[in-house]
Design a protein around this nucleic acid. Sequence first.
DNA 1: CAACAGTTTAGAATAAATATAATATATTAT
DNA 2: ATAATATATTATATTTATTCTAAACTGTTG
Lengths: 142, 142
Amino acid sequence: MAYAEQYIEKLRKSGLRPTKQRIKICEVLFDAEKTFHFTIKELVKIIENQANIKVSLATVYNTVHAFIRKGYLKEIPLNASQSYYDTNVTHHHHFFDEEENKLIDIHQDDVDEVNIKRTIPGKKIKSVEVIAKIVSDNQSQK
Amino acid sequence: MAYAEQYIEKLRKSGLRPTKQRIKICEVLFDAEKTFHFTIKELVKIIENQANIKVSLATVYNTVHAFIRKGYLKEIPLNASQSYYDTNVTHHHHFFDEEENKLIDIHQDDVDEVNIKRTIPGKKIKSVEVIAKIVSDNQSQK
DNA sequence: CAACAGTTTAGAATAAATATAATATATTAT
DNA sequence: ATAATATATTATATTTATTCTAAACTGTTG
């Protein structure tokens, strides 16, 4: 496992000690072939299925939020009942299918660069996200 | 009060009968000089301060959601602990100040048109929102 | 004024997220 | 390595937003 080193590095940079549980969280998040979206509960379920390690909700919350602070994960802005996170921290955007509660990536090439001309004194822009809500297209919309 | 007519119209179009409580909600939402952002709790507080009418949380939730369905209000996509709504339903975007939990409008002229080239079969885009998260700019960011 | 359909309400239920404090584990200096 | 110390994990309790529910209420119509 050459990966472990990277995970320990990520954890240390996030101000967390590398523990069994946290390394398992890293494996699930950063060892996947593709980037993906998840909720905390889904992440807990994946860990339970993949490993014989028990990880509590609290640990997952803490670790995920430490990674967000460090920029290893992104929170997807959505007024949903639960928070959605993304392992893809590159610049990209999302469709949100309101009927199926499903997120779909929009590659950055598919959206013109968002250029915000206004600034707020003393503040800098941390992130820019585009959310396009989509619904069924039943031709004749009343 | 010539306004009442408009409110009754809005309520009827939203599938709601015009009742005392609902008209009061309309007054607060649509009679303001400027558009504004609010949470459900804030809205309830405003009504309590402005009028001697008691309105329950449930009624406010129901009415606000009916208006959103009809397009008289917009929900602002944000992964915050509570939902934010906007009486400004014209095309515009937002800064979200993460440190002060404050929303700031970005006029549409200050953002280049967001053009999404990708489509999802059977779906149409209902709304496109840009959220720019901002934080303090302490020059030397560690 | 009685019957009825639709409203409002308080309070209960649900569920996400966070806090707590006891137990377990890891780190450090020796 | 080992003991002492610091930090992590966990189950549980708490908090808070939102939704649900059922009873009380309102207003309209015959």
